[in-house]
Structures are given as structure tokens and as C-alpha cells.
Design a protein around this nucleic acid. Structure first.
Lengths: 185, 185
DNA sequence: TACGATATGGGGTGGTACCCCGTTTGTCTA
DNA sequence: TAGACAAACGGGGTACCACCCCATATCGTA
């Protein structure tokens, strides 16, 4: 769905879609992933059924709300592909963590879909996963990280940390570094 | 509160308290930390106001539901204080993670109180934290872990992992080992 | 302009948390 | 043992929430 463009939606559909997103953005910023659908619809001046029709799941709404943030992260990932492989990966994971912690609700959007299926390449998770895969591959090739390190595990670790430390970016950074450097001397 | 015994509660209070816990246990096992208070009260054959009076917060209910599990973990921690410091700490963190992942809702109870205050030594977090502190201290003294490692950070990492991987203990184990061994070669 | 597909939204259903306050019950004392 | 009083109870109220049905309105086009 979304903007994949096969079905050119009616003008009022697009108008409402944008109204809904515009209403959702500040509310998500305030309430995070638990934002009330009813309130978003109310704020947008739209029936709640319409909101549910446009965004059949909470995930779908969050994915669109954070589309720009995900796009920005993806570009940053591209940039980091130019420098040192090891440092680049660390920087990437750290910036990802900080972004997730500082942007209420983003962490939830970065989580892998619970129902196993390969998450859409459009959603935040898909976009960020792709960038992570590239950076990890390069770091592996350069021998900058232990062999066997999996991009999905790293991503899972980052989302775990940012979900658990939402709004405390110092703690998130500390935990990430702890995980990166390991526990043994 | 609870069993600290300063206020000998009335007989019907104790009866209802046990009924509530008995009703809560299977429901928490089924629904985890999001268990419905209304359903617990209904199942216990008690008014919902009574449930709220006995357990003023979700946290308070979960803490009592998992009291025995926390106690078991604490004893296991004591055992591990007898063996190798480094291996003991690793074993402890791993068993803690697995227990949290396999026991729906336990992860939530292990989280540090959001509102900063020192969490009660009675609750799951307090009990488990104490055991963790001892094991980390010993491992630090033996030089089995990097200096600077903090028990609270380790515990936060474990709860982050188990919250994010609830019900997938293989993934949880993998993430924990990843964090333990670090990312660099 | 008329028509059919597309989209809307009021309002219903059934669920939740949390709390007020009139009523019951347990306990302790006389 | 009876009575008094604090302690505990619980029905029902308020205020939310997600999600969906279906009669109505709007859009794009033939």
C-alpha cells in the first residue's frame, strides 16, 4: 500500500491521508507508540473509521509517521559506507540508538515484525535493516568485527536497548557501548 | 506492605489477597504483563475495586505474582557465588535472561522503576539486583570482567533483551552472548 | 449530467482502568 | 455475648479505548 502507486487514490483520500499524518506527528511525539487512534482522528477532523481504513495497524501509522526519519537514517548509512568500516558501523549503531531513543515511538517502528514474515522493505525496519546489512557486511569483510556477527542480531540489540531506555539517551549509549565492547577484559 | 507484618490485616483481606493471586497467576502466564485487572478480579470472584485496593499498581501485582520466581533466582545466585567468578556471572545472566523470556510478564517485573527512586528491596527487581551486584563485585575483584562494568547496566541490558525477545529464548540467548563477547574481533 | 465506484463518519459493541460511597464483615472490648 | 467501630467490600459510574457496520456523500468519468 502506501505510496507504491499502483492504485492512484482519489483526491479526498490523499487529502485525508495527509491530514491524518499531520495530526499524528505531534501526538506521536507526545505519546509515543501508544498514541490514541481516536485522538488522532479527532484532531484530524476525520471519523475514526477513516483512520482505521487508512492505517489498518498501529505499525502502519508509525511506519508512515517515521518515513522521513527512516529516510534520513538511510542516507546517513550511505555516507558512513565511505569511511572506516569498523568505526562506521559503531557510529551507525550509536546514531541509530540515539535517534530511536530521542524520537518517541520510533523504537517500536524499528522492531522486527513479530509475525516472522519478511517485513516490508518500505517500513522503517526494512529501510534501516538494509543499511545495517551493508555496513555489517563491509565491517566483516574488513575484519573489523568478529566473524559470525549478524546484522539482524545487532539490530535486535539496538531496538531492545532503545525500547527499554526510551527517553534516556545517556543510558542507551552506555548500554550500547557495553554490548559493543563486551564484558570480558 | 505485603508480608512485612507491621499491620496485621483482617482475615477476609488475606483470603481475598490469596484468591486474587491465585486468579492472577494463570492469567499472567497467558497474557503477560498486560493482563486485564478486570478479568483477574472477575476470575477471583471479587470486585475490581478490591483488586485495585490490594494492588495499587500493575507493578505491585506482578511483583507478588513473581515473588517465588524471584526467590528461586536469588537462591540460584547464592549457589553461583561458590564457583568460578567469570563463568558464574555469565551463567547467572544467562539463566536470568532465559527465566525472564520464558515466564511471561517476568521481564516487566525485572525492569528498574521508571521513576528513579530506589526500587523496593522486596520487589523482583530489588531481589535480583542484589544477587547481580554480588556476582559482579566478585567477578570484578577476580579480574574476570572489564573494570567499569556496572551491575545496573548489566541488569538493564538483560531486561532490555528479554523484554524485546519475549517468548523467543533462543534469540535472547544469542543477543546476550553477542553483548557478552562484544562486537570487535 | 448522470452514474458507479470509492470513500466517509455517526454511532454501536464490547472492552478497559480507576474510583465513589453505601453496605457488610471482622474484631475487640465491655 | 452483644454492641460498636474501623476495616474491607463491591456495585455501578465515569471516562476512556479499538474496531466495525452500513447508510450517505463525494469523486472521476463516460
Amino acid at each position: 500500500m502506501a505510496s507504491s502507486g499502483l492504485k492512484p487514490q482519489r483526491a479526498d483520500w490523499q487529502r485525508n491521508h495527509e491530514r491524518l499524518l499531520a495530526a499524528a506527528r505531534p501526538l506521536v511525539a507526545r505519546d509515543g507508540a501508544q498514541v490514541s487512534f481516536e485522538e488522532v482522528a479527532r484532531e484530524a477532523g476525520v471519523g475514526s473509521a477513516t483512520l482505521h481504513r487508512h492505517f489498518p495497524s498501529r505499525r502502519a501509522l508509525l511506519d508512515e509517521v517515521f518515513r522521513e526519519a527512516a529516510e534520513r537514517l538511510r542516507r546517513r548509512g550511505d555516507e558512513l559506507l565511505g569511511g572506516d568500516p569498523g568505526a562506521g558501523l559503531l557510529t551507525w549503531l550509536e546514531e541509530l540508538t540515539v535517534a530511536a531513543v530521542e524520537t518517541r515511538g520510533l523504537s517500536a517502528s524499528l522492531e522486527a515484525d513479530a509475525d516472522g514474515g519478511p517485513s516490508s522493505a518500505e517500513g522503517c525496519h526494512g529501510v534501516v535493516r538494509t543499511a545495517t546489512v551493508h555496513l555489517v557486511d563491509r565491517a566483516l569483510a574488513a575484519g573489523a568485527v568478529r566473524p559470525g556477527i549478524s546484522p539482524d542480531d545487532l539490530l535486535a540489540l539496538v531496538t531492545a536497548i532503545s525500547l527499554a531506555t526510551e527517553s534516556d539517551s545517556a543510558a542507551a549509549r552506555r548500554l550500547l557501548r557495553l554490548a559493543f565492547d563486551g564484558v570480558r577484559p
